[in-house]
Amino acid sequence: MQSSLRIRKITKGIVVTIGLLFFIVILLFPFYWMFITSIKPDSELYDTAQPPMQLLKPTLEHYVYLIENTRFLLWLKNSALVATVSTAVSIVIGTLAAYSLARLRFRGSRTLGLTIFITYLVPTTLIFLPLAYVIRSLGLFDKQIALMITYPTFLIPFCTWLLMGYFKGIPRELEESAMVDGATRLQALRMIILPIMLPGIVSAALFAFTLSWNEFVYALTLAQTEAIKTLPTGIVSQLVLADVYFWGSLMAAALLGSVPIAILYSFFLEYYVKGMTAGAVKG
């Protein structure tokens, strides 16, 4: 009996490990590919006889080129600034909007919620021209703030939609109890609901930050000056010259550019999981 339990435990362990390994390989392979391409000399990159996973003479020349010959660090800073501001703005507005739609009873709230969700689904390629027109009318064309204003147009619907689900999962009784005890609605939201919502807010912030970090079309059209470009548009403009692609440096930029996101995720993931397992209604 005991050995049967042990076998079952071992089998479960093996299945889980294989499953995890499978996903780890799938998820990490792009990073491995970026890394190996970024440290391969051009002679190996263009050698079709050499197995693609093989690396004979690692080099840092692509990283040196990236740092010395492009404005990579400036673009990195620009991306961080734009993504941070847009995310912060979107989270504040998205949280309030989600709370209103999930909690307050008013005519058309359901339709409004659905409309906000549909807004998120409109592709950027369809609305970048009208948005550019609006930005020009505001006199903000080719300024960094243009991105900080336009990114929330897709981040707020996203955050609202995501956070509405979290709000709906929190029992109304919690805030009603607080209000019975004399708290105003805003106090109940701030002191009771938001601490419980924190995992959801962190998730929404992480996704919003990633969406801002990777955004391309608005960045290309609204922030055209080299000094205010973000990472996605900057590296393409200087590492794709005519039909010559600087593959090594492109991969180096992609890899280095994903580091801040990876750090953010690894830092907040633990907090997020902890929050999920410590819910207000845990038995």
Binding site: F128, L129, A132, Y133, I135, R136, F141, D142, T221, Q224
Partner: peptide, 10 residues
Amino acid sequence: ATAAETGAGP
């Protein structure tokens, strides 16, 4: 294309 449509750009 953006410049032509919006009247803003370089």
